[in-house]
């Protein structure tokens, strides 16, 4: 080995092993910064993750009510003590990003028993019909219920600010189940049949959770996909169906806020 190398100068050659004296300070400083950044970064970035909200599964139930398919499957129950408008619940499927449109369309207007797992976010609930595997559990029963439901109440034209979400993730299947990082997932859920909902920036007639519909009362046209997960304001007709508000939007009036 040459003189130059032996005199421990600052020149490092990988295959010669040891770090030269003169480089040790710099390398140690780098390694310390590197490790500190990784330890500090993990804690800072991990702890800075926002609150996904109090949402998630809330046990299995069987509910009896009248099933509707439009704009998205939902179940309405007659008024009862403490619930003068009658419990009203959007229906999702327990089988991933799918919906129960087929069953709801077939049984539309009939009294049914629906079994599945509840998802709850604050006061708002949905039912994931059936279980992860197997058929959806929606069974028609002999009971006349439709005449006992509260009438649909038109609430006029509104412009409301909020975010288009899929009801399934927003109510706790994914935490967080909203926001721009979740946009593609939300689209995928609604494409698959999950009811699209509008989460208003503030309470509207006491509710922040509105079932979405197009102007004609059907499911949203594909144009909603550009707006999902953004804070927007949009105009439409609002109506009350039991405890659930339905917002029939005109997407051409949407503005990004």
């Amino acid at each position: 080995m040459s003189e130059v190398h032996r005199e421990k100068d600052d020149f490092f050659v990988g295959y010669m092993g040891r770090l030269p004296e003169a480089t040790r300070g710099a390398i140690t400083a780098f390694v310390v910064c590197f490790l500190a950044a990784f330890v500090g970064g993990a804690l800072a970035l991990g702890a800075a993750q926002g609150d996904p909200g109090e949402a998630g599964p809330a046990g299995a139930v069987t509910l009896r009510g009248v099933i509707y398919a439009q704009p998205y499957p939902h179940l309405r129950m007659p008024p009862e003590a403490g619930r003068p408008l009658g419990r009203t619940i959007a229906l999702n499927s327990a089988r991933g990003k799918r919906g129960v449109q087929a069953e709801a369309t077939e049984l539309f207007g009939q009294t049914v028993e629906v079994t599945g797992g509840r998802l709850l976010r604050g006061e708002v609930e949905t039912l994931q019909v059936g279980w992860r595997r197997g058929a959806h559990r929606i069974v028609a029963v002999e009971e006349e219920m439709a005449s006992r439901l509260t009438p649909v109440e038109p609430l006029g034209r509104w412009r409301i600010a909020g975010e288009i979400c899929d009801s399934k993730c927003y109510l706790g299947v994914m935490r967080p189940g909203r926001g721009l990082a979740h946009k593609a997932c939300a689209n995928l859920c609604v494409i698959g049949g999950a009811p699209a909902v509008f989460v208003a920036a503030g309470p509207i007639e006491g509710d922040e959770f509105l079932l979405l519909a197009d102007a004609g009362g059907g499911p949203l046209p594909p144009a909603y996909r550009d707006l999902t997960a953004l804070l927007i304001s949009v105009e439409g007709e609002l109506e009350r169906r039991g405890e659930l508000l339905v917002f029939k939007v005109d997407l051409s009036t949407a503005e990004t806020l």
């Binding site: 804690l43 991990g46 702890a47 993750q49």
Partner: peptide, 10 residues
């Protein structure tokens, strides 16, 4: 460790 430092309701 970080989740225990975060402010999450769930």
């Amino acid at each position: 460790l970080a989740p225990s430092l975060a402010d999450w309701s769930r």
